[in-house]
Design a protein around this nucleic acid. Structure first.
Lengths: 224, 224
DNA sequence: GTAAAATTAGACGCCATTGTCTAAAACGTC
DNA sequence: GACGTTTTAGACAATGGCGTCTAATTTTAC
């Protein structure tokens, strides 16, 4: 009887989901063909229609799958935010690297931003939930984490929400063009971008005594 | 004979170009139909094929048209960058507002970012030129303008390219999500976003004496 | 007004895609 | 090995879009 023969079925489902994500990402919803998805998934077309009633059903399932993965990853990265300020610049830099590498510049992040731009108007409810649970959560959570550091006298911040958005924006400043054009930054580039971002962030929000230790007043670098 | 009957022809061309931009932007290349473009342009389908040999030709023409408009606007906005530092915060804020409003959050800016994401892989040469003349020029030009201010002792900057990218990134920090989701920020939101960005930028890069005047040391806002 | 050029509506062939259907094959469990 | 389920390959109709063609109509220049 039909107990749990889900072993092979589940593998098929995942295979279809992965292939569909790949093809939808490259071709968009309109440009993607079920036949190509079936070919990439090494699965018959009928199997796809067997699991997902129609193209749109499959699309929604793919987006929800990617959203879940991305949200889980974001939660995981956020939980690695530095708690104390012993080595703030290095810890924040490492955090920014993780955030960029695993949440923003990674495959899922690019996929979601691409999709929300192309199909956002056609499926408002679908991406609205991602907006709240993804980028929305990122800002509020990061805002709270920065507040913790500020409460511990490590940072001087007047508006935590603004500072959170600026931290993310600075972290992407050097990578935005690359990711926009589909390139994936190397580890060295990720490291350098995060370092630049955190230096500037701490120059703006770091406690004057704290940030100055270690660095000479940086005035030496100015030309003339 | 065929001298220059271009009066009506030119109008048709522009009408087609506008309609095609609209439909391509909403539906993407694959999803856009020539019939719909013809309907929006109030033009027969044959007229489109008369001016542009095939769908791809039309698409390329649309992208180049938008690129030219965007580049001209970017050049115009860059030329309004403040020269002296008499009222740096306000001048930079006004500049950031113009940059966001007319180059990044406007219709053409959103269109180009959307298109480069969806069709960038399929037409690399097409968008590569925009990358160099649009975002590329923005960074190098802004870098030179910041260098001018730094040379005049108004700013303290160690890496001008990084500072330029950070200025743009900070300017978008509060607006990124809105533009990603297709919304258009109000003037008040533009003003506030630019103000937040420039405040932080000047906290990081402003000369200590200059930036402190006017503002109390901002330590009062910290909780506890 | 006239002639050349441009535009229009509509029909047409062609091709790709969607979603359904069927019969055969593979699979997993007993 | 037998049975029920799943998968597969392929055929199938229906749809829609692209690009072409034609004949009629409008616009424009002179």
């Amino acid at each position: 009887m039909a107990g749990h023969r889900q072993r092979g079925q589940c593998a098929k489902r995942l295979s279809i989901l992965d292939a569909a994500a790949d093809v939808f990402c490259r071709q968009g919803f309109a440009g993607a063909s079920i036949d190509e998805i079936a070919a990439v998934a090494c699965v018959s077309r009928q199997t796809i229609y067997n699991h997902y009633r129609e193209k749109e059903t499959l699309f929604v399932a793919v987006v929800e799958d990617v959203m879940n993965r991305a949200n889980a990853m974001l939660f995981s990265v956020l939980s690695s935010f530095p708690e104390n300020a012993d080595n703030l610049e290095d810890d924040l830099t490492a955090f920014a690297v993780r955030l960029n590498k695993n949440c923003i510049c990674n495959h899922d992040g690019k996929f979601l931003r691409k999709l929300v731009q192309t199909e956002g108007e056609r499926y408002p409810h679908l991406f609205q939930s991602w907006r709240q649970q993804g980028p929305g959560k990122l800002t509020t959570a990061l805002s709270a984490l920065l507040a913790r550091l500020a409460h511990g006298r490590a940072l001087v911040i007047d508006d935590f929400d603004v500072a959170a958005r600026q931290f993310v924006a600075l972290g992407n400043a050097d990578l935005q063009m690359m990711t926009l054009f589909g390139e994936t930054p190397s580890d060295a580039e990720l490291e350098k971008a995060a370092r630049n971002a955190v230096r500037t962030f701490l120059k703006a929000y770091g406690r004057p005594e704290t940030e100055k230790t270690g660095h000479p007043p940086q005035l030496a670098a100015i030309s003339g």
